[in-house]
């Protein structure tokens, strides 16, 4: 099974990388750009008996390493 794990900043947490990218895009002439935010994606291939089991394990990975709950949320998207 393969899952994409999206690590995103929580609402209200400033995203300096996104802000700087927006500024640069505007400078390049993309004036319609309203907002840019960044996220990190980990593609995880995992052996598991069921999707539920895999999802439980991936949640644990997020809580133990991939996300800092103070500033980040995580979201799992199944690829296959």
């Amino acid at each position: 099974m393969i899952a994409d794990v999206y690590i995103e900043l929580k609402e209200g947490v400033v995203d300096p990388e996104g802000e700087a990218t927006k500024k640069a895009l505007r400078l390049l002439g993309f004036r319609k750009v309203k907002n840019v935010s960044t996220r990190k994606v980990f593609r995880i291939e995992i052996d598991a008996k069921s999707k539920e089991e895999a999802e439980k394990e991936i949640k644990e990975m997020c809580e133990k390493l991939l996300a800092n709950p103070v500033i980040q949320n995580y979201r799992i998207v199944w690829i296959e």
Binding site: V13, V14, D15, P16, E17, E19, A20, N68, P69, V70, I71
Partner: peptide, 11 residues
């Protein structure tokens, strides 16, 4: 974690 050291505001 109960705090984070986030990216500098200046990027």
């Amino acid at each position: 974690p109960e705090m984070a050291l986030g990216i500098n505001e200046s990027n």
